[in-house]
Write a protein that binds this DNA or RNA. Structure first.
Lengths: 206, 206
DNA sequence: CTTGAAAATGAACAATGTTCAAGAAGAATC
DNA sequence: GATTCTTCTTGAACATTGTTCATTTTCAAG
C-alpha cells in the first residue's frame, strides 16, 4: 500500500502560498507586534486576495494561532537542543536558552502568551499542550537530581520553576516596564536558579 | 490663599459620568475580557454618546489605561495591607495576597499586563512606575532579612522574586493552559517561596 | 475539448474605532 | 432676565479592519 500522496501542482502552489502567508504574518508580528497584523497587509504582501487567506486559515485567528503553534514548536526544538549531560547544567541551559529565544523573538512569544480568542472560543488544545510540554522539559534533569522525590511532585516543580523563569524573563524584557539590560537579566536568572537549587538541596550552600 | 476649587454642577456631572464610564468598562473587562470591550457598549450602558467617551478620555486606549491604572492602584493598596510585623511572614503574605487579588480580578490583571498600545505609542510611564513600585514591596522585608546585603542587589532581588511569583500565578491561573486548582496553586507558591528562602539563607534547611 | 470540482477573487457587508459640524447647556456679563 | 460667550454633548458620517459569498478562474479528469 502506497500512502505517499503525490503532490499535484495545484497543491504545491497552495502549500507554497500557505507558507508564504505564514512567513509574512510572522514577520509582521515579530517586527511590529500582534496588534499591527492586518489581513489586508498580509494578503497584499502575499500577492493574493483576502478571501484566499480566509480560504486557507478559516479566520484571522487561524493565521495567528498557526504562527503561535510554530513559535512554540521552534522554542521546543531549541530547548531540546540543550545538553543533558549534566542535569544541573541542563537546568541552567534551559533557562538561558529560554532567555535567548525570548530576546530574539519577543513579539512572537508575546503573541503566544497574550493572544486571546474572540468571544469565549477556547484556545486550541494542541498549542496549550505544546507549551506545557515545553515547560515540562525541566522534568528529566530534576528527576535525576531528586531521585527520591515523588514523580508528580517533580512534574509540578518543573512547571513551577519554568513558570518562575518565564515571569522573570517576560517582565525583564518588557520594555514597557523599566527595561533590564540583557546582560543583567541573564545574571538575574542565573542567581535566581542558584538560590533556588540551593533551596532544593541540589546545590550546596556556598 | 484658598486652593480648594469649588466643584461646579457641571463638573459634578462630568465627574459622575467619568466614574460611571470607568465602572462600566471595568465591569466588562472583568467579566468578559479586554477583547470584549467596545466603545458603543460602554456609551450605551453609561447613557451617553460615544463622543462623550472620547471627550472624556481622548481615545479608547485612554479608558483602558485608566482602568489599568486603578487596577494597579487597588493591587498596591491590598499589598500594602499585608502585615509587616514579621518579615518572613510578610513575604509569604505578599505572594498570597497577590494570588488572591489575581484570582479575584484575573481579567483586570491580564488587561494590565497584556494591553499593547496602537502603533508605537509608549505605555504611560506612571502606570509602569506603579507596577514597579508594587513589585518593590518585597524590598523592605528583604532588607530586614538580609541586613548585610547591598541595597541595589536587594532591589533587584525583590523584582526578581516578585516577577517569579507573578509568572507562577499568571500561568497557573491561565485557564487556557492546563488550569491548576486554586488550592494547589497556593501550595505551589508557598513551596516555591520555601525553597527560595532556604536558598537565600533566610530560612533554615528543613 | 468538455466538464465538474476546487480555488481565487474582490466587492459588499459588518463591526468597531474616530472625527467633527451643529446644537444644547451652562456660565458670565450687563 | 436677556444676551453673549464658552464648553460640553450629540450622533451621523467616516475610517479601518475582519468576514462573507456570488462570480469567475483554474485545472485535472474524462
Amino acid at each position: 500500500m502506497n500512502n505517499v500522496q503525490e503532490e499535484s501542482p495545484r497543491d504545491q502552489k497552495k502549500n507554497r502560498r500557505r507558507l508564504q502567508i505564514l512567513e509574512i504574518a510572522r514577520g509582521i508580528i515579530a517586527a511590529k507586534g500582534l496588534r499591527s497584523l492586518k489581513v489586508r497587509d498580509v494578503a497584499e504582501a502575499a500577492g493574493c486576495s483576502v478571501g484566499s487567506v480566509y480560504n486557507e486559515f478559516g479566520d484571522f485567528d487561524g493565521v495567528i494561532l498557526t504562527v503561535n503553534r510554530e513559535t512554540v514548536q521552534a522554542l521546543t526544538d531549541r530547548l531540546r537542543g540543550v545538553s543533558d549531560e549534566d542535569p544541573v547544567r541542563q537546568l541552567y541551559g534551559l533557562a538561558e536558552t529560554y532567555l535567548e529565544f525570548f530576546s530574539e523573538h519577543a513579539n512572537l512569544l508575546r503573541s503566544l502568551f497574550e493572544h486571546r480568542m474572540e468571544d469565549d472560543r477556547p484556545y486550541p488544545d494542541d498549542i496549550l499542550q505544546m507549551v506545557m510540554d515545553a515547560f515540562a522539559l525541566m522534568h528529566p534533569p530534576l528527576v535525576r537530581l531528586l531521585p527520591d522525590a515523588d514523580d508528580v511532585k517533580i512534574a509540578l516543580l518543573s512547571r513551577t520553576l519554568f513558570s518562575a523563569v518565564h515571569g522573570i524573563i517576560s517582565l525583564g524584557l518588557e520594555e514597557r516596564m523599566v527595561a533590564v539590560p540583557p546582560q543583567l537579566l541573564r545574571q538575574q536568572v542565573e542567581q535566581f536558579l542558584d538560590a533556588h537549587l540551593v533551596g532544593l538541596g541540589i546545590l550546596p550552600r556556598r
